[in-house]
Structures are given as C-alpha cells and as structure tokens.
Computed example of a mutant assay.
Amino acid sequence: MSVYNYLAKKANGDILSMQTYRGKVMLITNTASQCQFTYQYEDLQKLYAKYAAHDFEILSFPCDQFGNQNPESGAQSAAQCMGQFGVTYPIFDKVQVNGEMTHPLFNYLKHEVDAQPMSKDTMQQKLLYHRIEEQYPDYLLGHNIRWNFTKFLVDQHGKVIARFEPDASMLDIENAIQQLFA
C-alpha cells in the first residue's frame, strides 16, 4: 500500500485519485478555520510558494473534530483560505481524522508513522495538552491525530516519511522537505 491507493474529494465535490501526485513530495494536513494554529495557513503557503516548482504539494483537509473549529463546508473553507490567507495549494472537502468515520487516507497516514510524545515545554504546548486531555483523552493514545494542523510528509514514491504535530517548527518541516529534494 501507498498513499497512491486512496481517493479524496475536492472542495468542489470532484473525486481525485492520489495518483495525481505521483512523483511529488507532499505535505498532507488536517486544518481548521478557527483554530489557534490557523496562522499556519500563511506559513504553509510560503512553503508551497518556495517549493512548488520542485514538485511539491501541500494538501489541506478541513476537519471539525477538534473543538468545532471548522464548522464550514469544504467549499466554504477553501474560499476562506484563498480569500483570507492567500492559499493557492489544494483544499479538499471536510474529513474526519479519528474515530469510526476516519477518512481512509488519514487512517493510512496515521498508521504509517508513530505519533511523538507531546511536548509540554511551552505555555502553548501545555495548554494544548490539557485541552486534549480534558476534552479528547482518547486522542492522546495510539495513532490518533491529536489536533488540527497535524502534518504528514510523503516522499516522491508515496511513502510516509514523517509526522509533525501542530506545534512543530516550520523550520524543522522545511528541513525535512529539503532532505527529500537532496
């Protein structure tokens, strides 16, 4: 199995095969329009602008499983991301990333790379950990995605290389992307 075995629904309702991205490095993320990490849309757009010419794609999947932070539809989310944050990378339809209704692509991604222990070094990390612990304690276990803006780096061959938690440094993510182009 690889990431290429999956289909995804675009924000406009069209079904897209992940085969479309064969040979490209991908950063796949679950996002939300009203999250404390929403500023990352702009950071992700900067990465996309910098590396798109090198066969790099960012695939954004809105998700409303964490604190009702993306109540909009996929199409509304895409319009908001383009208008408010200048996003030009693909925004897909809204998905679930945990539980019985987990999108098959995210089920695959989260089982390919283990989650790292959550750091509690900064105030933001402590607050996020305690919110998850109080509201979604099961998300701290196993392969679950813990919050919005969890990112999966996929190489040119469809292999999941790394998982980055929402508070991961964009510099660390960019360094991992650069290694795949080396």
Rank of each mutant, 00 (worst) to 15 (best):
G67W: 11
G67L: 04
Q69H: 09
P71T: 09
E72N: 12
E72D: 12
S73W: 15
S73Y: 15
Q76R: 10
Q76S: 15
A79I: 06
Q80E: 14
Y89S: 06
Y89N: 03
Y89M: 06
Y89G: 02
I91V: 15
D93R: 05
D93F: 07
K94N: 08
K94T: 06
Q96L: 03
V97Y: 08
V97W: 05
N98E: 01
N98P: 03
E100Q: 02
E100P: 04
M101Q: 13
H103P: 01
H103Y: 08
L105W: 11
F106V: 08
F106N: 02
N107L: 09
N107P: 03
N107R: 12
Y108F: 10
Y108S: 05
Y108W: 07
Y108Q: 00
Y108N: 01
K110F: 04
H111K: 09
E112S: 06
E112T: 06
D114S: 13
A115K: 12
Q116K: 15
Q116V: 10
P117S: 12
M118P: 04
S119C: 12
S119V: 02
K120D: 03
D121M: 14
T122L: 14
T122S: 15
M123I: 12
Q125S: 04
K126S: 07
K126I: 12
L128F: 12
Y129W: 07
I132L: 09
E133A: 09
E133I: 07
P137L: 08
P137Q: 10
Y139Q: 08
Y139A: 10
L141D: 15
G142R: 14
G142H: 11
H143C: 08
W147G: 08
N148A: 02
N148L: 00
F149V: 03
T150A: 05
F152M: 00
F152H: 04
L153V: 02
L153N: 09
D155W: 00
D155H: 00
